[in-house]
Amino acid sequence: MARNGLEIIEGLLEKVEELSGQNVFACYQCGMCSAGCPLTDEMDLLPNQVIRGLQLRDWRTMESNAMWICASCFSCQVRCPKGVDLARLMEAMRQIYLRQQLDHVSIDDMTPEQISKLPQIALVASFRKKTG
């Protein structure tokens, strides 16, 4: 998927649905996901707005930081009355970047001092979620 042009916007929704196995249009925008999300303070789009953006094939959804703030805690997933797994949608959006080798965390820029303070459980998880 190239980044510019109509083609991408056309393909975006299908790609996200294919990777996530979710039906984006099942969402009726009740907002339960955003109400339960513990990290919305840091997000520039609320979780339900992310789904709305996908429904509209709006490329700006892919420029939101929400997918990178999401920690896959599944609060939204257990609360959604329509059974939409938003955590999977976020993962699919991350994967669209990561599969083009567009890492969100730069391993090369981390110093031994920084890493010495972190447990490996955090590093393994972060690298799985934010490097391709």
Partner: peptide, 17 residues
């Protein structure tokens, strides 16, 4: 270097991948 347990991870963090 400090030969602590996570020293290899410090210098080769990609092993976490």
């Amino acid at each position: 270097i400090d030969p602590s347990e996570n020293v290899l991870l410090q210098y080769y963090p990609e092993i976490a991948r």
